[in-house]
Design a protein around this nucleic acid. Sequence first.
DNA 1: ATAAGAATAGTAATCATTATTAAAATATTG
DNA 2: CAATATTTTAATAATGATTACTATTCTTAT
Lengths: 128, 128
Amino acid sequence: MKLSNTLQRRVIIEELRKVKSHPTADELYQLVRQRLPQVSLGTIYRNLELLSEDGQIQKLELTGKQKRFDGNIKEHYHMRCSNCGCIVDVEDKEIDAIHDNLQVLVERNGFDGFRLELIGRCSRCGNT
Amino acid sequence: MKLSNTLQRRVIIEELRKVKSHPTADELYQLVRQRLPQVSLGTIYRNLELLSEDGQIQKLELTGKQKRFDGNIKEHYHMRCSNCGCIVDVEDKEIDAIHDNLQVLVERNGFDGFRLELIGRCSRCGNT
DNA sequence: ATAAGAATAGTAATCATTATTAAAATATTG
DNA sequence: CAATATTTTAATAATGATTACTATTCTTAT
Ligand SMILES: [Mn+2]
Ligand SMILES: [Mn+2]
Ligand SMILES: [Zn+2]
Ligand SMILES: [Zn+2]
């Protein structure tokens, strides 16, 4: 059950924690292979799965065809940029309040939970 | 620009409007081929895309690897059953109120919009 | 009816992901 | 440490969902 300590695993975690971009498996593959040119894409996929099951990283449940991963395991919200499609963290007291309200409201209406994904413009794309 | 009137297109729309299951392309393919055994899966995909662009049907933006389609073009909420994974319509005045509140709140916080997906148990799976 | 354009069936290709496997690395035991 | 058991890896194949290609057929506008 305990994951053994391999170089590939360490580098995957390190690179994922370095970036704030919520990379897909193949994006992370590009990063990892700069340090481990022999690494295989299957190793990235397998370890992202294992590490998220193990709670060391987060697998994000977002729309879109590719899965994305987050080195930050703290629960937090994400915004998708409507222009470039990137995923950015939302650190906002108000959103947390909205979350708590929603939780109460949806449970009061007989649901077990919800998934909320914010949409907006990232800083690079501006707000026009 | 205007879509021409083909038998395949008519049957696709008819079958999609008949069901309440929010089928994937291949699920709809199974339905359509009962009436048109020669229809090809590519035709289903192409037409679902064209018809949703044309506003005659709805393409649902949900989590999960397969796209789902809805013959009902009115905007409405969906719940995913946490047990069987099916998608059911949510017709609930309260949810509409929640939606309106959320819209105000997220815009007030600088976002353009949001996507909210409800999670619960469908009627067949019960509520335990 | 004719010609131009659009759509189709059939098939191949692509993209994301998962499975397989023999060899290599890591962990456990004596 | 050495022997052994277990896990992981790289490479590759396979899968599932979707999109692209193309020759033929259908639809629409003259
Ligand atoms: Mn994040
Ligand atoms: Mn619906
Ligand atoms: Zn952007
Ligand atoms: Zn169910």
